[in-house]
Each structure stands twice: as C-alpha cells, then as structure tokens.
C-alpha cells in the first residue's frame, strides 16, 4: 500500500511510537500514583515510583476538609444541564442550517465562526457586569445560561455535519406519510443521528466540566464554585497541598477520560469532517 517497510524502518517507527506513548501516559500515571501515596510519602526522598503502601488518605481529606463534595455536585449539575440544553438547541439550528437554503444562512454561519475565533475570555468584564445587572452572579443557573451560549456555535456546526450525512429521502418519506416536520426530526432523524448527538453532548459536557475563566469570574462563593474554580483556589494559596491537589485532579480527569474513550471515534469524526465549513 504505502511503499514497503524495511526491518530497520519498522524498528525506528515502533521505538518512536513507544516513546511517545510513554511520554503521553507518564504524567497521568504520575498524578494518579501521587494521589495514592500516604500524605507524608509525597514529600519523601528518594522519590518512589511505586509506593510500598497505598493510601486513600488524600481522597478522604479532600471530601472532609476541602468541601469537595459541594464542588463536585455543582459541576455535575451545571455541566449536565448546560450540555443537555446546548445540544438540544443546537440540534434545531443545525437541522435548519443543514436542510434549508436561505439568504441569511452564510451570515449566520459566519457569526458562529466568529465566536470560535474570538475567545470567550475577551468579554469577561462586560459579561460580569451583565450578569450583575441580571442578578445572576454566584448563581448556578446564570453560569448554565452562559455555558449554553458559549458552546452552541461549535455544537451547531458539528451537528450540521452529521445531519448532512443523512440522506434527505428518509425525512421526505416520513413527511409524505403525514408526519409534521417537528415529529419527523424527533422520530425519524434523531434515532439515526444518535451517535452524533451523543458525541456532541459528551463534547459539551467535557467543555463545561473543564471551563475555568467564566466560572472563576462569575462564581465567588464557596457554595456555588465548580471544580476548576475550586482548584484555582487551591493553587492560589501560598503552599499547595499536593496530596489533596492530586486526588482532586484524578477525580476531575477520570470522568472526562472515560467519556472521551467511550465517544472518541465519533468526536474525531465530528472534528475532522463536520467542522467549520461553509
């Protein structure tokens, strides 16, 4: 297929692939191992790469003294609600942008593209003032509204790509059978699109789960903080408690890694094929 491989070539190739894999995995391994060491062992010398005793002390401390349960709950609520609404709203707009031709269409696509080029942090100040006026600072509902708005444009573009992969004939047949457009969308297209919709949802969820600057700006009180905001508090303190920090990092990373592993094929497809076109 692509030329023949020599034995030496193969050796070079697999050596490099192996080294890169090692380099990729090692930081993740290291944070996990750190979190499982007894708090005293983290700062022991020589550094141990495989602790003699494993301990869950760091995790216990996190939920005990650091209020982590509250942050976790906030993150789950905010990310779930925002990702669900953003995906649902984007489905409607993506459907129209995939299936209709109209004059303002390219302007709308351009408007979506612009939000992707200009980062969200550029308007942190004005957004804070707006949310203050709406009395939605330190308010999970307020943060949810902002997240929905921030993740709609890319989600729309991604879902549009998936819609365009579905032949028109399917819904035309359904509409000839007397189904309304709305019913067709939900009963005929939605089941076919399920993998794409799940991928879009996961993508939104992970983005909301990870988002830092908007939540740092809008959430100040300890009751409403999401995990990244709380972690930001951890690193701002003079002495970082690496035991709690590593445990918190593992708990933050684990769910998103599982979700990505589950949906990586569809996400890659959405990114490489469905992305910005038009």
């Amino acid at each position: 297929m692509i030329g023949r491989e020599t034995t030496a070539g193969r050796a070079v190739k697999f050596t490099f692939l192996g080294l890169w894999l090692l380099f990729t995995i090692f930081p993740l391994y290291w944070i996990a191992i750190t979190s499982l060491k007894a708090p005293g062992d983290i700062f022991a010398y020589p550094i141990s790469y495989w602790p003699e005793t494993f301990s869950l002390e760091n995790y216990r401390g996190l939920f005990g003294k650091a209020n982590f349960g509250t942050y976790l709950t906030n993150s789950i609520i905010v990310a779930t609600v925002a990702a669900t609404v953003a995906t649902a709203v984007s489905m409607l707009s993506a459907y129209v942008l995939a299936r209709f031709e109209f004059r303002t269409k390219s302007a709308l696509l351009m408007a979506a593209l612009v939000t992707q080029m200009i980062p969200a942090f550029i308007a942190l100040g004005p957004l804070y003032l707006l949310m203050t006026d709406l009395q939605m600072v330190d308010n999970r509902f307020g943060l949810i509204l902002v997240y929905i708005a921030v993740y709609i444009p890319f989600c729309t573009v991604m879902l549009r790509g998936f819609f365009e992969n579905i032949p028109d004939a399917l819904e035309e047949a359904a509409m000839i059978d007397g189904l309304s457009r709305f019913a067709t969308l939900f009963r005929v297209l939605l089941p076919v699109m399920r993998p794409g919709i799940i991928a879009a949802f996961i993508f939104n969820f992970v983005n909301c789960w990870n988002e830092l600057f908007l939540s740092v700006t809008l959430m100040n009180s300890d009751d409403t903080k999401t995990i990244p905001t709380a972690l930001n508090g951890f690193i701002s303190s003079f002495n970082i408690d690496w035991g709690s920090m590593s445990a918190a990092a593992v708990l933050t990373i684990a769910p998103t890694m599982l979700l990505f592993a589950f949906a990586s094929r569809h996400i890659v497809q959405g990114l490489t094929a469905g992305a910005v076109k038009g």
Binding site: W20, L21, T24, I25, P27, L28, W30, I31, T34, I42, F43, Y45, I47, V206, W209, N210, E211, L212, P228, L231, N232, I235, I240, W242, M245, S246, A249, T252, I253, T256, M257, L259, F260, A261, S264, V268
Partner: peptide, 26 residues
C-alpha cells in the same frame, strides 16, 4: 485511543499536572 487521552483534560489541569512534575524540590 491512548494518545488521545490528553485531549480530555482541560488546559488548566494540564498546567497543574506539569506544575507538579516540574516541581523544584519533589
């Protein structure tokens, strides 16, 4: 799938991860 993993992590957390890896003392 394995080399895809860094992508699931936020830039902020990656910063924290490497802050620990590059820690001067430990």
């Amino acid at each position: 799938a394995l080399i895809f993993f860094p992508w699931a992590i936020s830039g902020f957390l990656i910063g924290i991860l490497f802050r620990w890896l590059f820690n001067g003392e430990f």
